[in-house]
Design a protein around this nucleic acid. Sequence first.
DNA 1: AGGCCTCAG
DNA 2: AGTTCTGAGGCCT
Length: 455
Amino acid sequence: MSLEFLTADSFHDPFAFPAPPAWKRRSTENDAKQPLLYFHTDINSCYASCERILDPSLKNRPVVVLSNNDGCLVALSAEAKAMGYRLGDPWFKVRDQALARGVVARSSNYELYGDISSRVMAVLREYAHGFEQYSIDEAFLTIPVSPAEAVHIARAIKDDLARRIGVPVCVGVARSKTLAKLANKTAKKVPVLRGVCVWDRLPQARRSALCQALPVDEVWGVASRTRKKLAGMGILTIADLTEADIPMIRKRFSVVLMRTVLELRGISCIPLEEERKFKDQLIYSRSFSTPIVDREEMAQVMSVYAQRAAKRLVRDSQHAKHLSAFCATSYYGADLVFPAVQVRLQAPTADPVVLTKAGLKLLEHAAFDGPRYARAGMLLTDLTPADSATAFDLFQYPHEKRQIATTIAAIEQKLGEGTVGLGRAGFARRPLWEMKRELLSPRGTTHWEELVAAR
DNA sequence: AGGCCTCAG
DNA sequence: AGTTCTGAGGCCT
């Protein structure tokens, strides 16, 4: 993978880019004549690139970012990929050799990535007529322009993000989201494209060669299960899938795959999604650094998880009506034990006391005479906006009137995360089972005391 | 309506 | 010994 754009002159030259050009404007009646094109943008090796922004010594070095609990690789710089490391490699397996070969590893620092992400999204919105943030590092934009113009816009987006934020991105452009994703992937794989691929500007021969070479699961929305089923019918490549019989796909598979096939043909049928104001569910689930066998320790886990989940509810201004709590032994062990409990709450709540009490019901359903629990979690569903129904005092929990959750939030705001905790979560030191994040970088853009220093 | 399956990043 | 976490949508019953 070429990283030449990182060293290109334009990367450093603030005068290399003119003021926002004419197409960086909201729609006019003129736009109606243009076809709507989908621009798919994503940050190359997002987490590794974010780590690099704050630590330039990582430039040109192999960088890997580890999942929660420092379990496996979730992001790799181009150099690390070139050395043969792969997404999902268990860290404990590659660790010694990787460190010896000069690989730099970091625990995932979601606060940093979230902050960089929002800066990137803000820039992207400047270019977009329609906009959808698809994930922390990806967005779809729609812009009514010709493919010829799209080439320039896509390149401007890429250069702008390199200059203003310092992240490398690729841009794929096409008439549907699915093709835009495919174009993006092409931009990543074909160095001469220099990070930008407008599908309709690729020579037809190149496009079909690509589609005949790539397996179906390179397509957005097609994964291993569908690949196997398709293979049984002789549909192996993207080209095969594009030509597949639509009614057959609808009948033997699903509307989802049917849409995918249409989109591959350039017929857009997966529109931009509206921004979801509220989530439908909230999950707080973690693996432990060491297994839990003890009931009292699991009680502590539930207490901590309930309070963290409560904190998210408060942040999102939501209340929950239903809670399920579970714990589980390792996936990889011989016999999976997976106790779970469902609790219907009396009223929608974000109260950590209520949630803790509900979570503790798990202990009544779980055995503690052998199972070594590797993870636990809490699932909050039936979420409602916090201001909707709770006006009725009658249905409020008594703690809520005393504002426990918001008080805790206020104290943590002032004194820092984890300075207060209720009941079992009020420990002075981190408990043993807390997930590992040993290689964490500073939260250099969001916390004063960890602010990045410039000389 | 709710459990299960599939998928994504 | 150790292998992520979170969220959505469709299908089936």
